[in-house]
């Protein structure tokens, strides 16, 4: 059976982290499972985790009043879910729902925020990695806005 330490150290998102930082992360990590259609989190709720998806698929949704929920993005195996734990006021902006049975590693953001304040090297390493996730999300949103397949 794979240990949390081995899973985290082998994941590209955590590549290059110092062993002492990896140990800190492992101390904040736990295995979680979600059934199909189960919500991982709801918009507006406190954001105190992020997730490394190990299998299955999660959809990020927004539910405008009086309308059907709109799926903005799906995330699958190997991808990172959630960065609101890192940005005040630490509230989720979207709903996250398991499209199919999904297993993940949850990392306790509240625990990590404290460790990042105490060890700025760890904070910088995590911020660099999450900045990349945010940048990719921003570029993807811009491409979606362009509606490139609908033009013409």
């Amino acid at each position: 059976m794979e240990t949390l330490e081995r899973i985290l150290s082998g994941h590209p998102f955590f590549a290059g982290l110092a062993p002492r930082h990896l140990d800190l992360l492992v101390g904040c990590a736990s295995n979680v499972r979600f059934k199909a259609d189960e919500f991982v989190f709801h918009a507006g709720a406190e954001a105190n985790e992020f997730y490394l998806i190990r299998g299955g698929r999660i959809s990020l949704e927004i539910a405008p009043p009086g309308r059907m929920p709109l799926v903005l993005q799906t995330l699958g195996e190997g991808e990172i879910l959630g960065w609101s734990w890192l940005v005040p006021p630490y509230h989720w902006v979207l709903d996250a729902r398991a499209v199919e049975p999904t297993r993940a590693i949850a990392l306790d953001g509240r625990c990590l925020r404290g460790k990042c304040e105490a060890d700025h090297d760890l904070g910088y390493e995590l911020l660099k990695r999450f900045a990349l996730i945010m940048e990719q999300g921003l570029q993807a949103a811009r491409l979606q806005l362009l509606d490139v397949y609908g033009a013409g």
Binding site: R57, S59, M68, P69, L70, V71, L72, Q73, T74, G76, G78, V99, E100, Q136, Q139, A140, L143, Q144, D147, Y149
Partner: peptide, 23 residues
């Protein structure tokens, strides 16, 4: 396969095609 905009009945991927490249 991915779509830019999903529907309630779509069970596949949602997001831009460049997001599939790491897979």
């Amino acid at each position: 396969v991915t779509v830019d905009a999903g529907t309630p009945t779509w069970k596949g991927n949602v997001g831009v095609v460049t997001g599939l490249i790491p897979r």
